[in-house]
């Protein structure tokens, strides 16, 4: 248990609660439109491609590659002050959608666009598990 976690937590609302529930179970699932098949993210009530409201939660492989990334060299928030330099990446998932996340287990100097990555879950509190990524060879 990490009750001392001081970083901002996701803002969980009626639209995204199910996503975070799956994360807690260490599953990366996103909404897939039952009508056109588009996988959308962040979660929402309608498909932005066809406006269907019918969707299921498809389990993703968790594999992808780095679409882009930034490295914070100064702290914008006190809870991240000890983490400088840290990375925020956009991950291109194998199934199509992209998501913001962290890439760990690699020096920031070694990060590259298009580098393959794989998801894991970081149980930051009892209630929240963050999907993060590690580089794979």
């Amino acid at each position: 248990m990490m009750t001392s976690y001081t970083k901002p937590l996701p803002i969980i609302n009626d639209d995204n609660r199910q996503y975070w529930e799956y994360c807690k179970q260490h599953e990366l699932r996103m909404q897939q439109c039952n009508d056109c098949g588009y996988i959308r993210f962040p979660p929402g009530i309608i498909c932005p491609r066809c406006h269907s409201m019918a969707a299921g939660w498809v389990k993703l492989s968790g594999r992808g590659k780095i679409y882009s990334f930034v490295v914070y060299r100064v702290s914008y928030h006190p809870s991240y002050a000890d983490d400088i330099p840290y990375v925020v990446a956009v991950i291109q998932l194998a199934e199509g959608p992209r998501m913001e996340s962290d890439v760990t287990g690699i020096k920031v100097e070694d990060l590259k666009v298009d580098m393959p990555v794989e998801v894991y879950f970081d149980d930051v509190t009892d209630e929240v598990s963050l999907p993060k990524f590690k580089a794979v060879s």
Binding site: P8, L9, I11, Y80, Y86, V88, S101, D102
Partner: peptide, 8 residues
């Protein structure tokens, strides 16, 4: 969004 990953 993205605050939970430190995207400030």
């Amino acid at each position: 969004g993205g605050l939970e990953y430190g995207l400030f």
